[in-house]
Every structure is written in C-alpha cells, then in structure tokens.
Simulated assay, not measured.
Amino acid sequence: MTEQHATAPGAPSDSVTSADAVAEFVNASKRFGSVLAADRINLRIRRGEFLSFLGPSGCGKTTALRMLAGFESPSDGEVMIDGQAASNTPAHRRPVNMVFQHYALFPHMTVAQNVGYGLRQRRPRLPKSEIAAKVAKALAKVRLDDFGPRRIWEMSGGQQQRVALARAIVNEPKILLLDEPMAALDAKLRGEMQRELLDLQRSLGITFVLVTHDQEEALSMSDRICIMGKGRIAQVGTPQDLYDRPANRYVADFVGKANILTGMLLSQQDGLAQVALADGTRVLVRAEASAVPGPVDLAVRPEVLNLARPDAPLPEGSRALAARITHRTFLGDHTEYLLQADAIGALQVNVPRQAERAMGGHDVGTIVHVHWATGSGLVLAAQD
C-alpha cells in the first residue's frame, strides 16, 4: 500500500479507487453549533481492510465514525457506502454494526440472547432455529461456544467484549465499527484482545474501522491509519509509512516518539539534505524533493540515535553532538536516556539492552556524544 500525505482540505486524501472502496467520505463536515468537529474529510475505505482513526481527544475521529455508522449526518458533504449516498439512510438500515467502548450489553439477558437480539428484530421474522444456528456460529467465531446460557454479569471484561463482537458480526455487516473497544481492559488483556480481534478480522474478511487514541494499538493492528487533528485528516498511510515518513511535525510527534530539531536546510541531492543544526553541527538527513533551502524541522527517532563516550571513535559517516545525560530509565528491553544538548535542547535516545551491556551504560550527569548515521533523520514538511 502506498503512503498518503495530507493535502489541502477538500482534496482526496488517499489513492484507493471507488471500485475498491466499501465506504467513502466526500467533503464530509460536521458542525455542532459553532464547533466544527469534522472539516471536509475525504477518505476511501478499502473493502476488507483494517483501518484505524487515530488522534487525541477532540480531533474528529469519533465524529467520523458516527457519521459512518449513521448516528450523525454530515452538515456538508456526503458519506457513501457501497457506492451509494448514505447520509439519509438511518443507522439500522446500513450494512454496518458497531462495538461500543462500554459494550452496551443487556444485563438481564443471557449471552445467547444478547448476541441474537438484532436477529430477533428483523422483519420478516427469522425462524428460531435459524437464529440459534447463527448465534452459535458467531459465538464459535469469538471462542465462546459453551457460554450461550450464561448471564452477562458472570462474564469477565474480555469475555464481555467477545460477546459484543459476536453480537456485531452475527448480522454479517459489510463494515464493523469499533469505538475504543479495549479502553476498559488492563494492559495484558488488551494485548491479547488486539491479537484476537486481528485474527477475527482476517477470518471474516470484512472491513474493520477502529477509533483509538492509543498509537501502539493502531500501529499493531491496522493495514492503514488515518491520523486526525483539529477535525482534519493529517495523513493516511500504512503504520510503517507513518512512522518512517511522517508528513509533518504533528504526525511525527503523535506516532511514536520523535526528537524534533530545528535547523537550516543548506542543500539537497539524491533524497538527502544537508542541514545545519542550531549548534552548527551539520547532518545529512532524508528529504522530499519539494524541500527548499531555509529553516526546517527535523524528526529523528530515539532508536536511530547512539551514545558514545567523548573519546570513543565514531563510525564512518556519523555525525555527533555533545550532550549531558539528565535521566536514565531502564525499561527491560531497552534503556531510555534523556539528554540536554547546548543550543539543541532536550533529546531522547533509546538504547537496546544488548548494546547497553556492550558499552557498559552511562550515568546521569555524564557528558556523551550523540551520533547517528547519514539519512537517519527526516526533514518535515511545513504545517498549515
């Protein structure tokens, strides 16, 4: 899949064709009084993909999901499902089901009754035997085969989430919407449920659309991620695209951790730009062809930086600057160093455990050289 960078509001934000799309936002905006919650969203959602809307609170991601579900109608623009305008189609008539953050299960019903609730509302009515068969199939999909007679209050949080998933898939929707469904789970169970959810999506082959503010969740599960900010799409792309080639400072700062440095772009050739940092250090970093000489922001990921004692030789082609260690945090598989560099400011460097052992570690207060190889940073595009 190709990376998609942000464009001017109203312009298409991805290259998925209409034929490939199961749903599409066309210049879709949503206002709540004077608040513009979604601003001219243009996005095609590929049939069968796992797409995540990612962003902080108030960025517009939940509003986009609710417009797709039919709980909100665009103030302007259109939402398309299977090539047909859907903005005037009520939620219960769309081929879409939703799993809510708090599951919205009926406590007075059994697991099987909860899962079969939507089927019992169909008109004309389905035979009881057909409903029972569909419920059993859905429960098997989420590995709750023998739990049909149980009450909801007898189920753990993870099991309740599976019940909510079974209730959503039993109607065989074309799109399954997930509104931060794992927010209430503890960290270990959340990781397990992420894997199960991904396996379920692959086995069903239907489109999953997730809303989350958890970047790790989005990175680990998604085919593509739509980064939202201030009601607009900031960038759409694969997890690796967004991490390695963020479109701007907002995306670089939100997806993963990044050192954002300022400098002066002096020249560029063959995808590499020579940038002078604030302390005069010159580095070679990646840059798009559109980058022009002048002030720029750089994104440098903490894991591409290395630490060395001032008297240690540097690898050929590396650039280094002096910094003082202010904090050292052991995190199991790596150690996180926070440093302060004259004229540059704060830096973060993540050192893998094996490399930490080899070099013996560094103490707080120590002056070290921070260095990185040619092309390890990226010149960021200017933001609107």
Rank of each mutant, 00 (worst) to 15 (best):
E24Q: 14
E316K: 13
A104Y: 00
A28P: 06
A38E: 00
R357L: 15
R357W: 13
V283L: 06
V379T: 02
G256L: 04
V255G: 10
K174F: 01
I152Y: 08
L144F: 06
L204I: 06
A38D: 00
R309Y: 09
G317M: 02
G361C: 03
E72G: 04
A346Y: 09
Q348T: 14
A184Q: 10
G360D: 03
R44Y: 05
A320P: 02
D20Q: 14
Q274P: 00
R150C: 12
V292W: 07
R151E: 11
I260R: 06
L314M: 08
A218H: 07
G77H: 03
P127Y: 10
G58M: 07
H369M: 14
S29A: 07
A320C: 08
L36I: 12
L380S: 02
G256C: 06
G361R: 07
L65C: 03
E24G: 07
L380R: 01
A346L: 13
I325S: 12
L176C: 12
T262D: 10
L265C: 08
A11Q: 15
P313D: 11
A112S: 12
S52A: 13
G377W: 08
Q268W: 03
D186G: 02
E196S: 03
V115C: 06
E336H: 11
D333T: 13
S13D: 10
I225W: 05
R162T: 04
D244P: 01
A166V: 10
D241V: 05
V296T: 11
L177K: 01
T335Q: 12
A323I: 08
S57T: 09
M359A: 13
V300E: 13
A6L: 11
S129Y: 04
E3M: 11
E192K: 03
R94V: 04
M221I: 02
P352W: 08
P9K: 11
R353D: 13
A104H: 06
M359Q: 15
P124A: 08
L197T: 01
S87W: 04
V296L: 10
L338W: 10
T2A: 15
F71N: 04
K134N: 10
A278V: 11
P246I: 02
